[in-house]
Amino acid sequence: MKGTYIKIEQIMDIDSRLAAIEETQNEILRLLAKRAPPEPTVMTLKQAAEYVGFSPDHFRRLAVEQRSIPFSRPSGQQKGKLLFRRSDLDNFLDTSAMKEKTPKQPGRKRKPKDIHLW
């Protein structure tokens, strides 16, 4: 009789463990379903401008006219779709953040007050 009592206790323990595992698995599946899709590594002009925080027009000027952001054109022609790599955009943000850290005096340069004409 003692042996059957232990077996029933073991079965109950296994059932509670399986229930806990199933609950954990369901929680993991819920979290995976809520997770946002990964950001693309190659972005269009509009996506890249949104990623950096500029308007698309300003971002196009930075890339095409000033050549400060690397881009590619899949068509290979002068006009067409612009594509940007996320790593290039991250590098652009890092370098522009470094430039902003250098202190600049606001306003225009003023003439010194001790001007001697003669």
Rank of each mutant, 00 (worst) to 15 (best):
M1H: 14
K2E: 08
G3H: 02
Y5D: 13
I6P: 04
I6H: 14
K7N: 06
I11M: 10
I11A: 10
M12A: 14
D13K: 12
I14Y: 12
D15N: 11
D15I: 09
S16P: 01
S16C: 09
S16R: 13
L18Q: 15
L18P: 09
I21W: 02
E22M: 08
E22A: 09
E22Y: 02
E22I: 04
E23Q: 13
T24S: 13
T24F: 05
N26P: 05
E27N: 10
E27M: 06
I28C: 11
R30Q: 07
L31E: 01
L32W: 00
L32E: 11
A33F: 00
K34L: 14
R35L: 14
R35S: 13
A36C: 13
P38Q: 08
P38A: 11
P40E: 13
P40R: 12
T41K: 15
L45K: 07
K46T: 06
K46Y: 01
Q47S: 04
A48V: 02
A49D: 08
E50R: 12
Y51M: 09
Y51K: 13
Y51Q: 06
Y51E: 11
F54A: 07
F54N: 09
F54K: 04
S55W: 13
P56G: 02
P56V: 00
P56Y: 01
H58T: 15
H58M: 15
L62V: 02
A63G: 08
V64G: 07
S68H: 06
I69Q: 09
P70E: 06
P70Q: 03
P70R: 03
F71W: 06
F71D: 05
R73H: 00
P74Y: 02
P74R: 10
S75K: 03
G76L: 09
Q78H: 08
K79R: 12
G80A: 08
K81C: 03
L82Q: 01
L83M: 03
F84A: 08
F84Q: 07
R85N: 11
R85L: 11
D88M: 00
D88C: 00
D90I: 01
D90A: 03
N91Y: 06
F92N: 01
L93E: 13
L93Q: 15
D94C: 11
D94E: 15
T95N: 14
S96A: 14
S96E: 15
S96G: 04
S96L: 04
A97C: 09
M98Y: 01
E100C: 11
K101S: 14
K104H: 10
K104W: 03
K104F: 04
K104Q: 10
P106H: 05
G107L: 03
R108L: 15
K109Y: 06
K109F: 03
R110A: 12
R110H: 11
P112E: 10
D114L: 05
H116I: 10
W118S: 11
